[in-house]
Amino acid sequence: MSSFLQSHFNSSAIPTIRSTRTFRRNPDLSPTKFQQDQQQDQQQQQQQAYYQQELHSASSIPGQRQVSSHKEIRQYAEQTLGSGSALAQAVKLPKGEDVNEWLAVHVVNFYNQLNMLYGTVTEFCSPSTCPRMIATQEYEYLWQDPMNRRKPPVSMSAPGYVEALMTWIQGFLDDDSVFPTKMGVPFPRQFPALVRTIMKRLFRVYAHMYCHHFDEINELGLQTHLNTSLKHFVLFCREFQLLSPKDYGPMDELVSRMLDDDGKSK
């Protein structure tokens, strides 16, 4: 268990959405979830022996057989960028895969996508345009200093909040005991809970962009990318039950519409 994880993450004391409707707090881990985690650990141990043997041959797996040409795949990606059914298939845990490994790959992906998307609006999201990290006037996301949990959560500008958030996540990504890079090293026990917290906070960046920068994103021609990214995100969250409806805040309706569309197309 790393010191970084200990000092930056405590699943029972996670901030904090301030809403004019109700006060929202993070639910504690449920007992069923805990059992699942234990089962995962066992599975993980069994897998490890095999896994370590494969240290050197890992790179030989892909491309054993070329399914389609790269050009075909590219066309497919262009067509489906924005369509739900391909994404709904893509989020599913492959048979036999370790859940934490799958979660980890996706956290990195959504972190990168949001970095890219928010990066394009940084010119339009400044402390003067967005002095508070809000999504509609009804929701404000407060920042809890991870180094000092005794300090109350504070109101920050949107760019300040996003920067603090991304730095906080990057700290985990760079920490080998949280996101292991070496073959055979297991994920920490709290990993699924950490993933839920990271995803919950990442979602707020989507919420801010949708509620306050959608016109600009539209004008930049990135609305398809933003929609695809969000759709992928919510499908992934649904598949692994990472967020609860209240975490979607002002986006609740849009999110359930996205999930409905997908239900029909399957």
Binding site: S68, A77, T80, A90, Q113, G119, H225
Partner: peptide, 21 residues
């Protein structure tokens, strides 16, 4: 914007390629 578009296209090409194979 260009970097972002390229990133998404590459990512989803790679993702679907991976899922299918």
């Amino acid at each position: 914007v260009t970097v972002c578009q390229m990133y998404f296209l590459d990512y989803y090409c790679d993702l679907f390629d991976y899922v299918i194979s």
